[in-house]
């Protein structure tokens, strides 16, 4: 079987048991999410803010538990005794992944050492990784806080590639980037996928970019999957009204009537 991941009827309910929210009802964030992901593929998850995209990412990465359903991973056997998680996430705010006061070079060497358990070929491996994320040598000895946002993101990516995860989840990697950097990132992700064989899940509200990156796309609306299919099919023949709305909104083709109807629906 080639499925790396099978999600069956995953639901997530945020219980309102906090000090200040005792009287509010529990809130359903995700409802009956089911999909499969084959090894080596790139899956896109699209939806607007508040649709539950990031919650789903966190569940897949094991950061938060799901309320009901079944999540099956088929990791290769070498991961069984590994201390590292086979799932890694590249978060939106990269500054928070990297220790701002540590030298990037050391962070990467350490990650390679943790993964391989030996110090022999670290330099070679490190050069290869820095090279594959376009992280130039004059930045290797900088600390996290001395890097720009884009450089931090590439350093964070290098740190992730160093442990060679099976599955890499990208959470809104393109937001706050200009077109040049977006294109660079796009090519970078494709390369990580093909060179290292890492399966990718990319979460974004930008459906246009997902079209360029992904094999398959899932559209999430109010915590439910409203449409899934190959990128090609979703873009040439979108079926669900929300998919159509999302695509029109992105190309700024919505009339006031369309917008008003959508907002009243929310």
């Amino acid at each position: 079987m080639n499925e790396l991941l099978i999600a069956e009827n995953i639901s997530y309910i945020a219980a309102n048991q906090g000090l200040f929210s005792r009287n509010e009802p529990d809130k359903e964030i995700l409802n009956n999410i089911s999909f499969q992901l084959e090894k080596g593929r790139i899956l896109g998850i699209a939806g607007e803010s508040g649709s539950g995209k990031t919650t789903l990412a966190k569940i897949l990465a094991g950061i938060i538990p799901y309320s009901s359903g079944k999540l099956t991973f088929n990791w290769p056997p070498e991961w069984q005794k590994s201390k590292i998680s086979p799932v890694q996430i590249l978060f939106q705010n990269n500054g928070e992944i990297l220790n701002p006061f540590r030298v990037i070079d050391e962070i990467i060497e350490e990650a390679i050492y943790i993964k391989t358990g030996e110090k022999k070929n670290i330099r070679e491996e490190k050069e290869k990784i820095f090279d594959s994320v376009n992280f130039p040598e004059h930045l290797w000895n900088r600390k996290g806080f001395e890097l720009s946002g884009g450089e931090q993101q590439r350093a964070a990516l290098a740190r992730i590639i160093a442990v060679k995860p099976e599955l890499l989840i990208l959470d809104e990697p393109f937001s706050a980037q200009d077109a040049d950097s977006q294109l660079n990132l796009l090519n970078l992700f494709k390369e990580i996928n093909s060179v290292y064989g890492i399966t990718l899940i990319c979460i974004s509200h930008n459906v246009n970019i997902l079209k360029k990156l992904c094999d398959e796309i899932i559209i999430i609306y109010k915590g439910e999957i409203v449409e899934k299919g190959t990128a090609e099919k979703i873009f040439s023949q979108p079926e669900h009204p929300y998919t159509k709305f999302l695509m029109k909104a992105e190309s700024y083709e919505l009339s006031y009537k369309d917008l008003k109807a959508e907002f009243e629906n929310l």
Binding site: S49, H205, Y252, Y256, F263
Partner: peptide, 14 residues
């Protein structure tokens, strides 16, 4: 458009 989703940006545009 920073910090707002495309539907609201669309509203600004109109």
């Amino acid at each position: 458009t920073s910090g707002i989703d495309s539907a609201i940006s669309n509203l600004f545009l109109l």
